[in-house]
Design a protein around this nucleic acid. Structure first.
Length: 825
DNA sequence: CGACTGAGTCGGTGG
DNA sequence: GACTCAGTCG
């Protein structure tokens, strides 16, 4: 082991050497925070701390992964893999697999993402007969989320006079009811939302002394990254967990606190000092990232905020260029400028694509950038926006997997009950929900006992087949790993085949996405199995769950899979088959993917220009940064200019974007910009005025960059050929655009067949025939389309579809249940 | 039942 | 401009 301590400056070393007792590290941007954290972990282990007892919590999977890798690099032995490093959400989710039954949840509980949660909210809002124009799911979701982040349960919420008043003033007096109903429904579904992962864990620690005791012992040393981003729930949990050893080390930078909107509070930094008797405080102020010019600008900007923890970042790095201030006429010109500048820098200074980042306030701003980069043939990757696992086709597939692991999961059930079509339509679904609510049972229970609720014969048969199918999948859980189950499900349901048969561009993409999903499951299973083989003691300790004890684990594994079959096949002899190890089980996989974000699936090392929001860029660094859209109403956001607190958070955001840059920084704004399809004019951001003049290069700001081209602008020229700028999720990572796209829109899409039918006067004696036995080859007459010949018959028995070649109107697909056809011969 | 269409809406950041 | 929702039609 090399002497890692030599790599540190005095402050960093001091932080690493402080092994026991509370420690707070105030780490300025680019001051080597991750290095200190990882070195400290290594040092703890070198000094005899059991690697299983170290807990490190981050906010992103990426940060967790990086930390793991860097610890592994320092340590030569393989101890690093025993560390408990992860995001708050993933670590707590893992613990909850073992502890959730204490609060009445199943071990294989489902984690609802934001879409699932909003969908549940929509359901309960409707059931409460509230107007969903006023009680918008998104708004209500945020409100409930804030409550949970502040550890306010539905009960407490309803009792809190202040909250009731706030809601009344906002014309949403029934939020408390919605919260209660929502919580109840999630519980019934065996599902937790993101915030529940914190709230429920907290409740368990608070109400179950033995659980608290267990985890206090389990984690002798705790480290928290990005401490300024913690919310009260996280704060309280850390406080509980750390209360026994008091070996809590937090790292944060108040200047980079940008997550107040999801409940984070800087208060936690102040509170930390009060919670322990002697908190060691260390400041890291030497910046290793940026040039002097950039750092000076950053320092000045943040100086406009009141109440910062005093610190002054400095650097030994070179002077560097001045910051380039750019003004353009339109948002499209802004994009064009950025693309040109990237091209120029690549040629002149030999930068790679990967050296550039375009950072913006809102995701919507990516479009103008994309268009110009595409036009210049510059490869780019957009981070943020819709995650792979949120895509419809992927989510549908996953819904099947969810339902077999947790049949109470109503959201999953609703997605797939009639997909692919199996004759359980909206009417039947409504009925099902009605019965479930009346009887206070889950939809799944209604399905399993459908016969006793008087569904009509056809529907009943469809339901019974469906139930049988799901049960047969569930019976696989016990003996098969996640991949085998998933593969089987795809095959049996016809999901994969259906997508395969769709040869449209989107269809092919969807098929590929589903293949990708299967690959990811395979990879996950293989990875887990490989890791497992390394352990000699045969105990599954993968991510540090060893202390749970073997008995516990098997019990869990049995529980997961038993869930369904108990009713399906009767209790099984537990001795016939050994239960599968927990970590290759489908339920574990499902919980994990919900916590993945868009960024976790993309290659950050690819040689592409990176585009993302400033929020998403926190913790990252780039040689060249374009901070775009510095306009009033956009940055600062129109919604954040009413209070000092809000405005200061926007300013911190500005500070964050400046400090992402290592060598070169452009700050740009446009005079006009499209918003909701309309042009709006904006003033330059007030933050521009806070930039120190002597560090600015204004040669692009005097209107020097105008709409200089004589012809129509890039975006205008691109209009009309397809794609809304390529912002579709499928092709967000874009490599060398094939040159098939002409400079001018000479290509027009093929016109779809004429949609208006050529008039046909029905025969005088027209009367619809019984078409149940219609066969290919028969001659028919259609009320509107006229005479034709049946080419083929397809579709399910309850919904037959005929393809008919009409003499006047060409080939059409006709659904016999609705169309009126007369059989001629 | 489901694909299509026109109208209406739009508050942003994320695990 | 993009997305969702209610209504229409085959």
């Amino acid at each position: 082991m090399f002497n890692y301590l030599n790599e540190l400056n005095p402050q960093q070393r001091e932080a690493v050497l402080h092994l026991d007792g509370p420690l707070m590290i105030i780490a300025g941007a680019g001051s080597g925070k991750t290095k200190v954290l990882t070195t400290r972990i290594a040092h703890l282990m070198a000094n005899g701390v059991d690697s299983f007892k170290i807990l490190a919590l981050t906010f992103t999977n990426k940060a967790a992964k990086e930390m793991k890798e860097r610890v592994e690099k320092i340590l030569i032995n393989r101890e690093a893999r025993n560390l408990y490093i992860g995001t708050f959400h993933s670590v707590f989710a893992r613990i909850l697999r073992a502890e959730a039954p204490r609060v009445g949840y199943p071990t294989a509980f489902t984690i609802y993402d934001t879409d699932d949660a909003k969908s549940v909210l929509k359901t309960v809002i409707n059931e409460l007969h509230l107007d969903d124009k006023i009680y918008k799911p998104a708004t209500v979701y945020n409100r409930i989320s804030s409550a949970k982040n502040a550890l306010v349960t539905a009960e407490e919420y309803a009792k809190d006079f202040g909250l009731q008043q706030e809601d009344a003033r906002a014309n949403r007096p029934a939020i408390a009811q919605v919260y209660t109903a929502y919580a109840k429904r999630c519980f019934k579904n065996g599902a937790m939302d993101f915030d529940d992962l914190l709230l429920q864990f907290y409740l368990i620690l608070k109400n179950h002394p033995d659980a608290l005791h267990k985890y206090q012992h389990k984690f002798s040393h705790i480290m928290i990254d990005e401490y300024q981003d913690t919310n009260p729930a996280q704060y309280e949990i850390i406080k509980l967990l750390g209360a026994m050893h008091e070996n809590v080390c937090v790292v944060g930078d108040d200047a980079q606190s940008i997550y107040a909107f999801r409940g984070a509070t800087i208060e936690n930094i102040l509170l930390f000092r009060k919670d322990y008797d002697d908190v060691k405080i260390i400041k890291l102020e030497q910046n290793y990232r940026s040039t002097k010019q950039i750092l000076n600008v950053a320092n000045q900007v943040i100086g406009n905020n009141k109440g910062q923890i005093p610190k002054e970042l400095w650097t030994e790095n070179g002077e560097g260029d001045k910051i380039k201030l750019v003004r353009t006429m339109t948002d499209n010109d802004e994009g064009k400028f950025v693309a040109d500048a990237i091209q120029e820098q690549k040629l002149r200074n030999h930068f790679f694509n990967r050296d550039f980042a375009i950072l913006y306030r809102t995701n919507a701003q990516s479009r103008a950038m994309e268009e110009s980069l595409r036009r210049m043939n510059i490869p780019y990757t957009i981070f943020g926006g819709i995650s792979f696992y949120q895509r419809k086709e992927v989510k549908d597939y996953v819904a099947y997997l969810r339902i077999i692991v947790n049949p109470s999961d109503e959201e999953a059930l609703k997605r797939i009950i009639n997909f692919p079509v199996r004759g359980i339509g909206k009417t039947s679904l409504d009925r099902l929900i009605l019965v479930a609510n009346e009887q206070s049972i889950t939809m799944w229970e209604v399905l399993t006992r459908a016969a006793s609720f008087g569904f009509k014969a056809g529907t009943l048969e469809a339901i019974e087949n469906f139930v049988l199918m799901i049960k047969s999948f569930a019976s696989m859980l016990k003996n098969s790993n996640a991949y085998d189950v998933a593969f089987h499900v795809g095959k049996q349901t016809g999901l994969v085949r259906e997508l395969f048969n769709d040869k449209s561009t989107e269809g092919v993409q969807r098929y590929e996405n589903v293949q990708e999903l299967l690959n990811s499951i395979k990879e996950w299973v293989d990875d887990k199995q490989n890791r497992a083989q390394i352990d000699e003691d045969g105990v599954m300790l993968d991510e540090g769950m060893r202390d749970e004890g073997e008995g516990m684990r098997e019990e869990n594994a049995a529980l997961f899979s038993a869930n369904l079959e108990v009713e399906a096949n009767g209790p099984e002899d537990p001795n016939t088959k050994k239960p599968l190890r927990e970590d290759v089980l489908l339920s574990a996989y499902l919980q994990q993917i919900t916590l993945l974000t868009d960024a976790d699936n993309k290659d950050e090392h690819a040689d592409t220009v990176k585009m993302m929001t400033i929020h998403a860029a926190k913790g990252l660094e780039f040689s060249c940064v374009f901070a775009v859209g510095l306009e009033e109403m956009l940055f600062p956001s129109a919604m954040s200019i009413n209070t000092r607190e809000e405005l200061e958070e926007e300013r911190r955001l500005f500070y964050v974007v400046i400090t992402r840059a290592k060598h070169k920084l452009w700050i740009s704004y446009a005079n006009t910009r499209y918003k909701f399809g309309q042009v709006v004019q904006n003033e330059p951001s007030r933050f521009i005025n806070e930039l120190p003049e002597d560090h600015l290069d204004r040669s692009y700001a005097g209107g020097g960059f105008r709409n200089q081209s004589s012809g129509p602008s890039a975006s205008e020229r691109m209009k009309g050929w397809g794609g809304s700028g390529g912002a579709t999720p499928q092709n967000r990572t874009y490599f060398n655009e094939p040159k098939k796209q002409p400079e001018k829109p000479t290509y027009l899409p093929i016109q779809p067949p004429v949609s208006k039918p050529i008039a046909h006067q029905p025969s005088a004696d027209f009367s619809p025939s019984d078409t149940t036995d219609l066969k290919a080859g028969q001659q028919v007459e259609h009320q509107k389309f006229g005479f034709g010949e049946v080419l083929k018959m397809e579709g399910a028995a309850h919904n037959p579809i005929a393809t008919i070649q009409f003499k006047l109107n060409g080939e059409k697909k006709i659904m016999l249940n609705y169309a009126k056809l007369r059989i001629v011969e």
